[in-house]
């Protein structure tokens, strides 16, 4: 169970973490500047297990992995959006930041609402009304990466060719 931070559409990587804060690879230091300018209350109030909910095209813009790293290190359990920008989507899968695609949640949720999420089953429960939503399923080979906790962990124990078995 966690609190929802609701953002808008087309949230870009400069908003998630402006370029001038990409001066470190330390996840905690990046988390300190997550949404620093567009939503200064985020870093202060976010707790481990909270959620980000957004509209279309979340994470558009730069390829900077600092953005999903900052979100992950701030304790966010999952980002749930209508859609994700391509590079950001790959980056999340690769670093093991859970993302979910839901067409409905964004339109029925308010900032501060509480939800419960079952990542494995792709279920989202809205606590204030008990409503349950389902997220889109990932392709098999992406599930392999997610299950390993990211592509780096996958490669520790597997050859990249093994991904093809799920393709």
């Amino acid at each position: 169970m966690g609190k929802v931070f609701r953002f808008g559409e087309d949230v870009n990587t400069d908003e998630i973490i402006p370029g001038r804060y990409n001066v470190t690879t330390d996840p905690k230091a990046l988390a300190d500047h997550c949404f620093f300018e567009v939503r200064p209350d985020f870093c202060k109030n976010v707790n481990s297990g909270d959620f980000i909910v957004a509209g279309e095209n979340f994470g558009c813009g730069s390829s900077r992995e600092h953005a999903p790293i900052a979100i992950k290190a701030s304790g966010v359990k999952a980002v749930i959006a209508k859609s994700f920008a391509r590079i950001f989507y790959r980056n999340c899968i690769n670093i093991g930041l859970p993302i979910m695609i839901s067409d409905e949640l964004y339109d029925v949720i308010e900032d501060g609402d509480e939800i419960d999420v079952n990542l494995k089953e792709g279920k989202i429960k809205i606590l204030k009304n008990g409503k349950e939503l389902r997220s889109q399923r990932f392709p098999e080979f992406i599930l392999k990466i997610i299950d390993a906790g990211g592509i780096v962990n996958f490669l520790k124990n597997h050859d990249i060719g093994e991904l093809e078995d799920g393709i």
Binding site: I87, R90, N91
Partner: peptide, 27 residues
């Protein structure tokens, strides 16, 4: 992200994050 530029010469260029770069470094 602007690696998409290279298609002006008929190459398939695309932007990725650092972990994807690391994957290609390794494999």
């Amino acid at each position: 992200s602007h690696t998409c530029t290279y298609g002006a010469l008929g190459a398939f260029g695309t932007g990725v994050g650092s972990t994807d770069i690391g994957v290609s470094y390794a494999t």
